[in-house]
Write a protein that binds this DNA or RNA. Structure first.
Lengths: 146, 146
DNA sequence: ACTTGGATTGTAACAATTACAACTTTATCA
DNA sequence: TGATAAAGTTGTAATTGTTACAATCCAAGT
């Protein structure tokens, strides 16, 4: 049995619990996200998978991401208004966006701290920490050009 | 001197420092935001001010918000991908969005906690904490309808 | 009053996302 | 296995939020 088949069966079970069928397209989206931790946009995911599935429709990518996000398997990153990004990692971490080069960095943070007395009677489902600024690489570039 | 004239002069000085001229439209946007802490969308702001300025263009609202955000006078809230919201308050606080009714709540939080060893060499300009879940009002509605 | 530059306006363009209907694949069960 | 139903995919069209841009307006300073 090939590696991809094994992955396939593994994921299939995982998704079955959440009542999601695993199609080839959905597998490919998950595969792309596990191999590209760069917080890709829909367009990047679409273009990336299209190499393997030439008939792929962008609608499918949207549908798949919506379903996977609903099941808590992928994280939606809306750090910037015009570009929604996706992330497979669901661990405790925040996101930093460099305002100069646009890159998004993960950083570890204790998400449990992200609460407040004001929210005592609220049911919290999702926590996001978004920071913006300049990354070290761009900082040193700026200094060099002085 | 009328109240609005006073506010006008006050703000004018404040903006002068940042090299921004204060037009009537810009004043109205600031006025709307101080009177509506509900984190309005561009559309809400536009519709709200249109009552006073019938010739108002939505482009002006966009321009104004961009300028004010750049000057740090308003905060951009991109908690949801499809609707950018704006907030006059620049104090230390996070935002909670109710996934049921869509309302956005402020909550106090120590923004200084929002950091990480991973970001030692980063220059941080902006910090946002976005939570999602169900607000108390919707929670009690759900319980009632059981 | 004239000029200059910034602000506003309205329209058109653009990009991301969603709606929808046709079609294809997969699952179910006799 | 084969018929039927359900789910998934596809492509196009529509929708929405936002930006680009050119024309016009307005206000400040000479």
């Amino acid at each position: 049995m090939s590696l991809i088949k094994l992955l396939f069966e593994e994921l299939k079970k995982k998704l079955k619990i959440r009542n999601i069928n695993l199609s080839y397209q959905r597998l490919k989206v998950l595969e792309y996200l596990t191999q590209n931790h760069c917080h890709p946009t829909v367009d990047q995911i679409f273009t990336g998978i299209q190499k393997d599935i030439s008939t792929l429709s962008k609608t499918t990518v949207y549908n798949t991401l919506r379903i996977l996000a609903g099941a808590g398997l992928v994280r939606v990153i809306t750090i910037e208004d015009n570009e929604t990004r996706y992330d497979i990692e669901v661990e405790n971490h925040g996101h930093f966006k460099c305002e100069s080069c646009g890159a998004i960095y993960d950083f570890s943070i204790d998400i449990d701290l992200m609460t407040s007395r004001d929210l005592n009677n609220f049911k919290i489902n999702d926590k996001n920490v978004y920071l913006k600024g300049i990354c070290p690489r761009c900082l040193s570039n700026i200094n060099e050009n002085k």
